[in-house]
Amino acid sequence: MPKLDRILETAIYVDDLDRAAHFYETVLQLAPLLKIDRLYAYDVGGASVLLVFKRGASDHDMTSAIGTIPGHDASGRIHIAFAVGAAELADWEARLAAHAVLVEGRTHWPAGGDSVYFRDPDGHMLELATPGLWRTY
């Protein structure tokens, strides 16, 4: 039986790519991998990629010399959890406060992990989570 190794990419859809870029590059310090008119891609910890699409700009198939990417789009707010070291969580909270990002919730999980919840400019719920959240993390 073949197995899945990990989630490689996570996609969100936003109304304003430049506003989203400012947040993800300035507040979360993500490094851009690609910036084109409909999509910005960011490296997350050297292990995964956050795709930030302009809402409605990828809802049709994209065909080029290298192949076809089927159309996709989404609406509504989603949730993404970013893994952070336990010793870094307080520094992240200070960084969020310095950028006037409101922390909406905190959770201490039974296995020992901690989570901090906040939103990006499009209302997506973001989480910073330390080890001890899941059996696998």
Rank of each mutant, 00 (worst) to 15 (best):
residue 85 G to V: 04
residue 26 T to Q: 12
residue 50 L to N: 08
residue 24 Y to W: 12
residue 26 T to V: 09
residue 79 H to L: 10
residue 28 L to I: 14
residue 100 A to F: 04
residue 78 I to R: 09
residue 89 L to N: 04
residue 99 H to D: 03
residue 86 A to Y: 05
residue 78 I to W: 02
residue 52 V to Y: 05
residue 47 A to F: 12
residue 122 D to G: 14
residue 107 T to L: 05
residue 26 T to E: 13
residue 55 R to Y: 10
residue 109 W to I: 00
residue 93 E to L: 02
residue 119 R to D: 05
residue 76 G to D: 06
residue 111 A to E: 05
residue 87 A to G: 12
residue 115 S to K: 00
residue 26 T to W: 09
residue 28 L to H: 12
residue 50 L to Y: 07
residue 43 D to R: 15
residue 33 L to S: 10
residue 117 Y to C: 00
residue 91 D to Y: 03
residue 65 A to T: 10
residue 81 A to T: 03
residue 96 L to F: 02
residue 77 R to T: 12
residue 65 A to P: 05
residue 95 R to E: 00
residue 61 D to R: 15
residue 96 L to A: 01
residue 82 F to Y: 11
residue 29 Q to P: 03
residue 121 P to A: 07
residue 132 G to S: 08
residue 63 T to M: 12
residue 52 V to I: 14
residue 26 T to N: 10
residue 43 D to P: 13
residue 30 L to Y: 08
residue 35 K to I: 07
residue 102 L to E: 13
residue 26 T to C: 06
residue 101 V to P: 01
residue 52 V to T: 13
residue 76 G to V: 13
residue 38 R to A: 14
residue 102 L to M: 11
residue 39 L to Y: 13
residue 122 D to S: 15
residue 68 T to I: 13
residue 51 L to C: 10
residue 41 A to W: 04
residue 80 I to A: 01
residue 75 S to W: 12
residue 76 G to H: 09
residue 101 V to D: 02
residue 124 H to I: 03
residue 116 V to D: 01
residue 86 A to W: 05
residue 50 L to P: 05
residue 54 K to L: 15
residue 61 D to G: 11
residue 57 A to T: 12
residue 86 A to M: 10
residue 101 V to F: 03
residue 32 P to M: 13
residue 47 A to M: 13
residue 132 G to N: 06
residue 68 T to Q: 09
residue 71 G to I: 09
residue 28 L to K: 12
residue 36 I to R: 12
residue 90 A to Y: 03
residue 65 A to G: 07
residue 74 A to Q: 11
residue 42 Y to Q: 07
residue 69 I to C: 13
residue 61 D to N: 15
residue 64 S to T: 15
residue 72 H to L: 15
residue 92 W to C: 00
residue 51 L to K: 11
residue 115 S to V: 01
residue 112 G to C: 05
residue 33 L to C: 07
residue 110 P to W: 01
residue 65 A to H: 08
residue 97 A to D: 05
residue 74 A to E: 10
residue 65 A to Y: 08
residue 102 L to P: 02
residue 122 D to R: 08
residue 51 L to G: 05
residue 76 G to R: 10
residue 35 K to F: 04
residue 30 L to N: 07
residue 60 H to F: 04
residue 48 S to Y: 05
residue 129 A to F: 02
residue 47 A to G: 11
residue 58 S to K: 11
residue 36 I to G: 08
residue 101 V to W: 00
residue 40 Y to L: 15
residue 69 I to L: 15
residue 33 L to F: 06
residue 30 L to K: 11
residue 67 G to Y: 10
residue 64 S to W: 14
residue 63 T to F: 07
residue 126 L to V: 03
residue 121 P to L: 07
residue 110 P to F: 02
residue 119 R to Y: 04
residue 63 T to V: 15
residue 62 M to S: 13
residue 78 I to S: 12
residue 121 P to D: 06
